[in-house]
Amino acid sequence: FGVGLLRPAPGTWGSAAAVALGVLFCELGGAWLVPVGTVLATLLGFWAVARAFAGLADKDPSEIVIDEVAGQWLAMSFTVIPLWWHGVSILAAWPGFVAPFLLFRLFDIWKPWLVGRADRRGDAVGVMLDDLWAGLFAGVVSVLLAGLYHGVLAQ
């Protein structure tokens, strides 16, 4: 929808737009829409990125942000689903979408371990996989931080 054309940092803009949509999904239809959106964005991303890159010299143009959307929604899924199960609005528990956003951007930029390995593939699959790995890591760390806060620090 043109978010990838925003400058600077189109990946951050794409992630921010994904968070805004994810919060809207949670408030209007239920948190289950975020993981469903993750699956749909992932499937669409693998299909679209391969076609968009056909014949291009740049195998990861910054204006393509469907990979950030899929990865960001994966990260958010780790926090929005437990909040929903407990009947807590995502807006009332704002770290539930801020932490996954910040952690996703950290892992997407830093590219540790499997994130970097996927990025170095240099193909359409790698473009999607690096953000999915970053989303998985961000989601797991978000849950660990929430557990640390709620289980240890808040007592």
Rank of each mutant, 00 (worst) to 15 (best):
F1C: 14
G2M: 14
V3M: 10
R7V: 10
R7C: 01
P8F: 01
A9D: 09
P10M: 09
G11S: 07
W13Q: 04
W13T: 01
S15Y: 04
S15V: 07
A16E: 06
A16S: 11
A18D: 08
A20N: 05
G22P: 06
L24N: 03
F25I: 08
F25L: 14
G29T: 02
A31M: 00
W32N: 00
W32S: 00
V34F: 03
V36Q: 04
L43Y: 05
L43R: 03
L44T: 10
W47Q: 05
A48F: 14
V49K: 04
A50Q: 14
F53I: 15
G55S: 08
L56G: 07
L56V: 04
A57I: 14
D58N: 14
K59I: 14
K59N: 13
P61C: 15
S62A: 15
S62T: 15
I64K: 06
I64L: 13
I64E: 07
I66Y: 08
E68Q: 11
A70V: 12
A70F: 11
G71V: 11
G71I: 12
W73G: 12
L74W: 06
A75P: 13
S77L: 11
T79M: 12
V80N: 01
I81M: 10
I81W: 05
I81P: 04
P82S: 09
L83R: 03
H86A: 13
G87I: 06
G87A: 06
V88R: 14
S89Q: 04
I90V: 15
L91R: 13
A92H: 15
A93L: 02
P95W: 01
P95D: 01
P95V: 01
G96W: 00
F101E: 03
F104L: 07
D108T: 11
I109D: 09
I109K: 06
W110C: 09
W110K: 05
W113Y: 10
W113D: 05
W113S: 05
V115N: 00
V115E: 01
D119A: 15
R120N: 12
R120V: 07
R120D: 10
R121D: 03
R121H: 04
G122P: 14
A124G: 14
A124T: 08
V127A: 07
W133E: 00
G135H: 02
G135I: 00
L136K: 02
L136Q: 02
A138W: 10
G139I: 11
V140T: 12
V140R: 09
V141K: 07
V141F: 12
S142T: 06
S142Q: 06
S142I: 05
S142Y: 05
S142A: 10
L144R: 03
L145F: 09
L148T: 06
L148G: 08
L148Q: 00
L148P: 03
Y149W: 14
G151C: 00
V152K: 00
L153N: 05
L153S: 03
A154T: 00
Q155K: 12
